[in-house]
Amino acid sequence: MPVTERPAEAAPARPDDLVAVPVRHWGQWTAAAVAVLGLVGLVGSLAKNPNLKWDVVGHYLFADLIFDGLFTTLWLTAAAMAVGLVLGTLVAVMRLSANPVLYGLSTGFVWLFRGTPLLVQILFWGYAAALYKHLMIGIPFTTVTFVEFDTNSLLPASVAALLALGLNEAAYASEIVRAGIQSVDPGQTEAAHSLGMKPALTMRRIVLPQAMRVIIPPMGNETINMLKTTAYVSVIAAHDLMSNIQDVYNQNYQIIPLLVVAALWYLALVTVLSVPQAWLERRYGRGTARAGHASPLRRMLTGLPGLLPTTRERKG
């Protein structure tokens, strides 16, 4: 192909005079418009629907009974997650142990509590008195007994709920913690050992802090899940938010407005919960390249200009 000399006037005079025109994404605009229209329609129809009875929603949204339930839901979530995390870490370490008995026990634990429906477990703890009327501590296979309890007084609905949720959570948490521990390079343990650190110190100071980076996102998920799962304990009347809501609508039959109250509160709590998760992720992400990460809201806002055509982009 012959190379011809270009005419001098066609060459760019000064790069600053050129305006780069970005591609217009007409398809994206159309899709966004359709989606917004659909959303506005849905919200509009909900707002106008008389069956929602916003006055009833407003009346119960800040009722004392609801706050009592909220309080129970919150402490139950916190306590069940605490039990789950502590017991789960213990089970995870047992599963990684070289001792076959500890390994067998922990594997059996996970098998049992992950393998049966949570609803069954909650009901089981709630009706434990039907299995053992009295609980006693003594020496097995003898008649020697040190203390004895009445099962029903030892296991009120709230304690039964906590046991059910905590033990179930421990089974799931143990798998998350185990994955976290196994994600840490074995070279880290060797380096710590070569400095004279004992196994427990190595686990606490070197392995677990690094495992946290892998553990926190799924545990955040578990916490959010737990907050909503506490609603199940209404089957043993544990006086959580959902139990109380059910009590109310069983009397006044305002089922839909009260479910909206429940949904609004669960949504609000979950939103608040994502704040500490982001904070923890930043804290345990120290030393990694992606440590500084933006909140979802910020990501959404900074993502917008990409959708809008800009004239500020120039080739320079």
Partner: peptide, 19 residues
């Protein structure tokens, strides 16, 4: 662990504590 305190070791892949 007590004995290892007196023996320093340097690894091929450094194994610094990243956190």
């Amino acid at each position: 662990a007590e004995r290892r305190r007196e023996i320093g070791m340097v690894f091929q892949r450094f194994n610094l504590f990243p956190h």
